[in-house]
Design a protein around this nucleic acid. Structure first.
Length: 587
RNA sequence: GGGGUCGUAGUUCAGUUUGGUUAGAACGCCUGCCUGUCACGCAGGAGGCCGCGAGUUCGAGUCUCGUCGACCCCGCCA
């Protein structure tokens, strides 16, 4: 037998018993006349004590065992002397007096230390991820990841959802992120794609009458990576029939509440606040506002008409806008203002005018151009009559607002603007259905299956950018953690959208014919949402990268440092697939 | 594709600003001492292609160019 108990389960209830324990030798403390070993498994840590006077051979052999070797110990559970009880340890009231120690597997010198207080570089941590996963913090993460998945399953099962698997090998679709392709051996020159999400399948499941579907599922997008983006990531994907926005909101709020109860023992206030996309864009300069701090952007164009200040006047005359971002209680020095401007330029603003308000007057140049009563109005509007500073920017409406939005986040970080602690959820609704892509073409801002707001459908052809969609995002502390919509369930409308997106009837039929055809056979009104599982876990565990909550993540350049993928394959494999590799163009 | 930060012992970092004897520290490792430790303590020791390749120079960890890799950001991510 390899073990009769687990290390973490040893306690004073079993003193006097003989046990067999197996685990990793975490540490040896050799006091000369007394030898302590710490034995660890997933369940905990237990102390082994050897007295060399009475157990010479055992002590000599134990001294030779390297840390992190896997060993098997047979011994007696005995109480520690009262003054030696370690209250910090779950097993701290007892220790094991061994009769026999056996090394099952020897451990070489470790490339990363087991102790988490010694920080290891991320490159090494990824290369030796299996060692890093031994560390308590990582094990805690894995446990939390497991609990998140289980609590989602339990909640959705309780609410009548069925977990249905959808294919990983599917057809490549033209819209959206770049697909990962998988070559077909049988049909040379043809490819499967890995799903960017199970979107079309879950809609087809609604056509099948499944009514409530969910899946915790991997998705794949071949785009560049960030701290919160990996090439493969996990979604909680769900879809419901015969529902409207409010049904989704309510379900999701109850689900997040359950999750936070179960994982963090935190009671969320529901319902979550809501903001339309338009308001989010105007007040926060982005579509995923971090509402943990209040600073909001205001349009102050009307305060500066004919003010004589060239930058502002010219912007207004050109049809632009003047926007203001307050920074209450701050008072910027010349040098700090230079720093703010340098950052502003990185965010696409030509510059910002920073002015301090002392309760009565604005510092120059604003003070010079603004009349006293208007100045007072501004002080009241932007700073609620208290002292502070304001960042003004003028120019194109979108560029100005989004620049100030980025500056807002930077300012909060740089100047330690006080933040509300905890989890702050926010729904953003009424996204535009379309946006212009980099080439100036009309593209879906969510995805092409999103339903337009009914009263806006007449503008699809005449004024597409004004059409609102029935899409919604869930934001948590400034991160988009879920995104969904009510879908189109009408073939005619779906075809109209495809054609507006520049897909010919032939193309639409070829790429999405299966979905369009399905719409001929009785489609329930339906909608759904998909959560970034890794992002939720990152935020609930207070990490700042999803790599910290993914068991085996890739680097920002898409490499797996542990197994060195992607890697070349044998010529024979390529031939089987009918693939030849183009020679790299020399520069 | 673009911008930035970084790469020095097994590990984490200092040293690079201003080129100049033998490249340091801590942790880990090895040896010895130590009977109540629990990040044990004390003493000693080993350990370096300064990421890689060119160049400048009498001389390069240090300066220049290239290259590889990690991280952060922009583009991209329906």
């Amino acid at each position: 037998m390899l073990r009769t108990k687990r290390c973490g389960d040893i306690d004073s209830n079993i003193t006097g018993q003989t046990v067999i324990l197996t685990g990793w030798l975490q540490r040896t403390r050799d006091l000369g006349g007394l030898l302590f070993l710490d034995l660890r498994d997933r369940y905990g840590l237990v102390q082994i004590v050897i007295n060399p006077d009475s157990d010479r051979e055992l002590a000599d052999s134990a001294r030779k065992i390297s840390r992190e070797s896997v060993i098997k110990i047979e011994g007696l559970v005995q109480p520690r002397p009262p003054e030696m009880i370690n209250k910090e340890m779950k097993t701290g009231e007892v220790e094991i007096k061994p009769f026999k120690i056996e090394v099952l597997s020897h451990c070489a010198e470790l490339p990363i230390p087991f102790e988490e207080i010694i920080d290891a570089g991320e490159e090494l941590r990824l290369k030796y991820r299996y060692l890093e996963l031994r560390r308590p913090g990582m094990q805690k993460m894995l446990e939390m990841r497991h609990r998140l998945a289980q609590s989602v399953r339990r909640f959705l099962d309780d609410n009548g959802f069925w977990e249905v698997e959808t294919p990983f090998l599917m057809r490549s679709t033209p819209e959206g992120a770049r697909d990962f392709l998988v070559p077909s051996r049988i049909y040379k020159g043809r490819f499967y794609a890995l799903p960017q999400s199970p979107q079309t399948y879950k809609q087809l499941l609604m056509v099948s009458g499944i009514d409530r579907y969910f899946q915790i599922v991997k998705c794949f997008r071949d785009e560049d990576f960030r701290a919160d983006r990996q090439p493969e990531f996990t979604q909680i994907d769900l879809e419901m029939s015969f529902i409207e926005e409010e049904d989704i909101f309510s379900l999701v709020e109850r689900m997040m509440r359950k999750i936070c109860q179960y994982l963090l023992n935190v009671e969320l206030d529901i319902p979550f606040p809501r903001l339309t996309y338009q308001d989010a864009a105007n007040q926060y300069g982005c579509d995923k506002p971090d509402i943990r701090f209040d600073l909001t952007i205001s349009d102050v164009s009307d305060k500066f008409t004919n003010c004589g200040f060239g930058i502002f006047e010219n912007a207004l005359k050109a049809g632009g806008t003047v926007k203001a971002l307050p920074a209450p209680e701050l008072n910027f020095s010349r040098k700090q203002i230079d720093g703010i401007n340098e950052t502003a330029r990185k965010f696409g603003l030509p510059g910002v005018v920073v002015s301090n308000w002392d309760g009565e007057t604005w510092s120059n140049p604003i003070g010079k151009y603004i009349e006293k009563n208007i100045g007072a109005e501004l002080g009241k509007l932007l700073l609620n009559d208290s002292k502070g500073a304001v960042l003004f920017a003028a120019g194109d409406k979108v560029i100005t607002t989004s620049g100030l939005g980025q500056l807002r986040l930077w300012l909060a970080e740089e100047y330690k603007i006080p933040q509300k602690s905890g989890l702050h959820f926010l729904w953003v609704t009424d996204f535009p259905l379309f946006e212009r892509d980099t080439e100036g073409n009309i593209a879906s801002s969510h995805h092409p299956f999103t339903a337009p707001v009914e009263s806006d459908t007449e503008m699809i052809d005449s004024d597409p950018l004004k059409v609102r969609s029935r899409a919604y995002d869930l934001i948590l502390n400034g991160y988009e953690i879920a995104s969904g919509s009510i879908r189109i369930h009408n073939r005619k409308l779906q075809e109209r959208i495809f054609s507006r997106l520049g897909l010919s009837d032939t193309e639409a039929q070829e790429k999405f014919g299966f979905l369009l055809n399905a719409f001929d056979y009785g489609v329930p009104p339906h909608g759904g949402i998909a959560f970034g599982f890794d992002r939720i876990l990152m935020l609930l565990s207070g990490k700042n990268s999803i790599r910290e909550v993914i068991p085996f993540p890739k680097t920002t350049s898409g490499l797996s440092l542990m197994d060195n993928s992607p890697a070349p394959v044998d010529q024979k494999q390529l031939e089987e697939l009918g693939i030849s590799i183009l020679k790299k163009k020399s520069k």
